[in-house]
Amino acid sequence: MRKSAIVIAMASIFLSSMAHATGAQLSVPLHNFPDSNHVHGVRFSFLYGKTKNVSGLDLPIFALSDIDNFKGVQFSPFIGIGHIHGKFQGIGINLVNWHEGDDTGVNIGLVNFTHNVQGVNLGAVNINSDQSLVDIGLVNYAPSTTFQLGFVNATQNLQGLQIGLINYAANGIVPILPIVNFNKNF
Protein backbone atom coordinates (compact mmCIF):
# COMPACT_ATOMS: atom_id res chain seq x y z
CA MET A 1 0.00 0.00 0.00
CA ARG A 2 2.81 2.42 0.89
CA LYS A 3 4.62 1.83 -2.45
CA SER A 4 1.49 2.50 -4.45
CA ALA A 5 0.93 5.77 -2.55
CA ILE A 6 4.51 6.86 -3.37
CA VAL A 7 4.04 5.98 -7.05
CA ILE A 8 0.74 7.88 -7.19
CA ALA A 9 2.29 10.93 -5.49
CA MET A 10 5.26 10.94 -7.89
CA ALA A 11 2.98 10.55 -10.92
CA SER A 12 0.83 13.45 -9.67
CA ILE A 13 3.86 15.72 -9.32
CA PHE A 14 5.10 14.78 -12.81
CA LEU A 15 1.71 15.26 -14.44
CA SER A 16 1.07 18.58 -12.69
CA SER A 17 4.42 19.92 -13.91
CA MET A 18 3.58 18.77 -17.45
CA ALA A 19 0.09 20.29 -17.23
CA HIS A 20 1.61 23.77 -17.39
CA ALA A 21 3.70 22.94 -20.48
CA THR A 22 2.62 22.62 -24.07
CA GLY A 23 4.01 20.26 -26.70
CA ALA A 24 3.80 22.78 -29.56
CA GLN A 25 3.48 26.52 -29.73
CA LEU A 26 3.20 29.27 -32.34
CA SER A 27 4.51 32.65 -31.14
CA VAL A 28 3.60 35.88 -32.91
CA PRO A 29 3.88 39.47 -31.69
CA LEU A 30 1.91 39.88 -28.44
CA HIS A 31 0.53 36.32 -28.29
CA ASN A 32 1.37 32.62 -28.00
CA PHE A 33 -0.88 29.84 -29.31
CA PRO A 34 -1.51 28.06 -26.96
CA ASP A 35 -0.87 30.58 -24.21
CA SER A 36 1.85 28.87 -22.16
CA ASN A 37 5.19 29.96 -20.73
CA HIS A 38 6.65 26.44 -20.95
CA VAL A 39 7.16 24.46 -24.14
CA HIS A 40 8.40 20.86 -24.16
CA GLY A 41 8.41 20.04 -27.86
CA VAL A 42 8.34 22.40 -30.85
CA ARG A 43 8.01 26.17 -30.88
CA PHE A 44 7.60 28.32 -34.00
CA SER A 45 8.12 32.08 -33.88
CA PHE A 46 6.96 34.42 -36.61
CA LEU A 47 8.21 38.04 -36.44
CA TYR A 48 8.48 38.02 -32.61
CA GLY A 49 7.81 35.49 -29.92
CA LYS A 50 8.40 35.44 -26.15
CA THR A 51 8.24 32.31 -24.02
CA LYS A 52 9.89 31.72 -20.63
CA ASN A 53 11.19 28.16 -21.02
CA VAL A 54 11.60 26.00 -24.10
CA SER A 55 12.94 22.45 -24.27
CA GLY A 56 13.11 20.81 -27.67
CA LEU A 57 13.12 22.52 -31.07
CA ASP A 58 12.74 26.27 -31.56
CA LEU A 59 12.23 27.59 -35.12
CA PRO A 60 12.34 31.38 -35.50
CA ILE A 61 11.02 32.29 -38.96
CA PHE A 62 11.80 35.93 -39.87
CA ALA A 63 11.70 36.40 -36.12
CA LEU A 64 13.28 37.46 -32.89
CA SER A 65 12.81 34.43 -30.66
CA ASP A 66 12.91 35.67 -27.06
CA ILE A 67 13.34 32.94 -24.41
CA ASP A 68 14.43 33.00 -20.77
CA ASN A 69 15.87 29.45 -20.64
CA PHE A 70 16.42 27.07 -23.53
CA LYS A 71 17.49 23.45 -23.93
CA GLY A 72 17.62 21.77 -27.34
CA VAL A 73 18.12 22.93 -30.91
CA GLN A 74 17.29 26.44 -32.06
CA PHE A 75 17.38 26.64 -35.84
CA SER A 76 16.31 29.50 -38.06
CA PRO A 77 15.69 28.28 -41.61
CA PHE A 78 15.20 31.95 -42.56
CA ILE A 79 16.39 35.21 -41.04
CA GLY A 80 16.19 34.68 -37.29
CA ILE A 81 17.63 35.94 -34.04
CA GLY A 82 17.82 33.74 -30.97
CA HIS A 83 17.73 35.84 -27.78
CA ILE A 84 18.27 33.85 -24.59
CA HIS A 85 18.21 35.75 -21.30
CA GLY A 86 19.27 32.94 -18.98
CA LYS A 87 20.60 29.43 -19.51
CA PHE A 88 21.23 27.98 -22.97
CA GLN A 89 22.03 24.30 -23.48
CA GLY A 90 22.25 22.91 -26.98
CA ILE A 91 22.83 24.12 -30.50
CA GLY A 92 21.88 27.56 -31.82
CA ILE A 93 21.93 28.04 -35.61
CA ASN A 94 20.70 31.55 -36.38
CA LEU A 95 21.64 34.70 -38.23
CA VAL A 96 22.34 36.15 -34.76
CA ASN A 97 22.73 34.27 -31.47
CA TRP A 98 22.27 36.76 -28.62
CA HIS A 99 22.76 34.93 -25.32
CA GLU A 100 23.03 36.87 -22.09
CA GLY A 101 23.47 33.98 -19.66
CA ASP A 102 25.45 30.76 -19.42
CA ASP A 103 25.88 28.66 -22.57
CA THR A 104 26.76 25.01 -22.88
CA GLY A 105 26.91 23.84 -26.46
CA VAL A 106 27.47 25.31 -29.91
CA ASN A 107 26.45 28.67 -31.41
CA ILE A 108 26.59 28.97 -35.19
CA GLY A 109 25.69 32.34 -36.63
CA LEU A 110 26.80 35.30 -38.65
CA VAL A 111 27.15 37.12 -35.30
CA ASN A 112 27.29 35.56 -31.85
CA PHE A 113 26.84 37.90 -28.88
CA THR A 114 27.33 35.70 -25.83
CA HIS A 115 28.17 35.98 -22.16
CA ASN A 116 29.68 32.82 -20.66
CA VAL A 117 30.26 30.00 -23.16
CA GLN A 118 31.41 26.54 -22.16
CA GLY A 119 31.36 25.32 -25.72
CA VAL A 120 32.02 26.68 -29.22
CA ASN A 121 31.11 29.93 -30.98
CA LEU A 122 31.36 29.59 -34.75
CA GLY A 123 30.56 32.80 -36.61
CA ALA A 124 31.89 35.67 -38.68
CA VAL A 125 31.93 37.81 -35.51
CA ASN A 126 32.03 36.36 -31.98
CA ILE A 127 31.74 38.84 -29.12
CA ASN A 128 31.64 37.53 -25.56
CA SER A 129 31.04 39.69 -22.50
CA ASP A 130 32.66 37.27 -20.04
CA GLN A 131 34.26 33.85 -20.59
CA SER A 132 34.52 31.85 -23.79
CA LEU A 133 35.96 28.41 -24.25
CA VAL A 134 36.40 28.30 -28.08
CA ASP A 135 35.78 31.03 -30.66
CA ILE A 136 36.22 30.39 -34.39
CA GLY A 137 35.47 33.29 -36.73
CA LEU A 138 36.80 36.26 -38.63
CA VAL A 139 36.77 38.51 -35.54
CA ASN A 140 36.78 37.12 -31.98
CA TYR A 141 36.68 39.01 -28.68
CA ALA A 142 36.31 37.74 -25.11
CA PRO A 143 37.58 39.20 -21.84
CA SER A 144 38.75 35.68 -20.97
CA THR A 145 39.18 32.75 -23.38
CA THR A 146 40.92 29.43 -23.88
CA PHE A 147 41.15 29.26 -27.70
CA GLN A 148 40.55 31.67 -30.57
CA LEU A 149 40.99 31.04 -34.30
CA GLY A 150 40.35 33.95 -36.66
CA PHE A 151 41.80 36.85 -38.60
CA VAL A 152 41.59 39.15 -35.56
CA ASN A 153 41.55 37.75 -32.01
CA ALA A 154 41.46 39.79 -28.81
CA THR A 155 41.30 39.04 -25.09
CA GLN A 156 42.50 40.35 -21.76
CA ASN A 157 43.02 36.90 -20.25
CA LEU A 158 44.24 34.20 -22.62
CA GLN A 159 44.26 30.83 -20.90
CA GLY A 160 45.50 28.93 -23.93
CA LEU A 161 46.16 29.77 -27.59
CA GLN A 162 45.24 32.27 -30.32
CA ILE A 163 45.82 31.61 -34.02
CA GLY A 164 45.21 34.44 -36.50
CA LEU A 165 46.54 37.33 -38.53
CA ILE A 166 46.41 39.68 -35.51
CA ASN A 167 46.34 38.29 -31.98
CA TYR A 168 46.00 40.52 -28.93
CA ALA A 169 46.25 39.04 -25.45
CA ALA A 170 47.06 41.33 -22.51
CA ASN A 171 48.69 38.37 -20.75
CA GLY A 172 50.18 36.81 -23.89
CA ILE A 173 53.85 35.99 -24.35
CA VAL A 174 53.84 39.34 -26.22
CA PRO A 175 50.61 41.38 -26.13
CA ILE A 176 50.28 41.63 -29.94
CA LEU A 177 51.57 38.93 -32.27
CA PRO A 178 50.79 37.77 -35.78
CA ILE A 179 50.03 34.09 -36.48
CA VAL A 180 50.20 32.67 -32.92
CA ASN A 181 49.96 34.02 -29.37
CA PHE A 182 49.72 32.10 -26.12
CA ASN A 183 49.60 32.61 -22.38
CA LYS A 184 52.98 33.28 -20.76
CA ASN A 185 52.42 30.24 -18.54
CA PHE A 186 51.21 27.93 -21.36
Rank of each mutant, 00 (worst) to 15 (best):
R2P: 10
K3F: 13
S4T: 14
A5H: 10
I6T: 05
V7D: 13
I8C: 08
I8M: 12
A11G: 10
S12P: 07
I13K: 09
I13N: 07
I13D: 08
L15H: 03
S16W: 13
S17A: 14
S17K: 12
H20Y: 13
H20V: 15
G23W: 08
L26P: 05
L26V: 13
P29N: 02
P29A: 00
P29D: 00
L30C: 06
H31D: 08
N32L: 05
N32V: 06
P34S: 08
D35L: 09
N37K: 13
N37L: 11
H38F: 12
H38L: 13
H40Q: 13
G41S: 06
F46M: 04
F46T: 05
L47W: 06
L47V: 11
G49D: 05
K50A: 13
T51N: 14
K52I: 04
N53W: 07
V54L: 12
V54R: 02
G56M: 08
G56Q: 10
L57H: 03
D58G: 15
L59T: 05
P60I: 03
F62C: 06
A63T: 01
L64H: 04
S65N: 14
I67W: 07
D68G: 11
N69C: 11
F70D: 12
K71N: 15
V73E: 04
F75I: 06
S76H: 02
S76K: 03
S76D: 07
P77D: 03
P77L: 01
P77A: 00
G80A: 03
I81E: 02
H83A: 10
H85S: 15
K87N: 13
G90P: 08
G92P: 00
G92E: 04
I93R: 00
I93Y: 02
I93C: 01
N94Q: 12
N94M: 04
L95V: 06
L95N: 07
N97F: 01
N97R: 06
H99W: 02
G101M: 08
D103Q: 09
T104C: 05
V106M: 08
I108H: 03
G109L: 02
V111F: 08
N112A: 05
N112P: 06
T114W: 03
N116Y: 11
V117W: 00
V117Y: 03
Q118N: 13
V120F: 06
V120H: 01
N121T: 01
L122M: 02
L122H: 02
A124P: 04
N126P: 05
I127R: 09
N128R: 01
S129E: 08
D130E: 12
Q131L: 09
S132T: 00
I136E: 00
I136Q: 01
V139Q: 04
Y141M: 07
Y141F: 11
S144L: 09
T145F: 00
F147K: 00
Q148M: 04
Q148W: 02
G150S: 02
F151G: 06
F151R: 10
N153Y: 07
N153W: 03
A154H: 10
T155S: 15
T155F: 04
N157M: 09
N157H: 12
L158H: 05
L158I: 11
Q159E: 11
Q159G: 10
Q162H: 12
I163T: 08
I163Y: 05
A170G: 09
N171C: 10
P175G: 12
I176C: 11
P178I: 12
I179Y: 09
V180H: 11
V180N: 09
V180G: 11
F182C: 14
F182L: 15
N185C: 07
N185K: 14
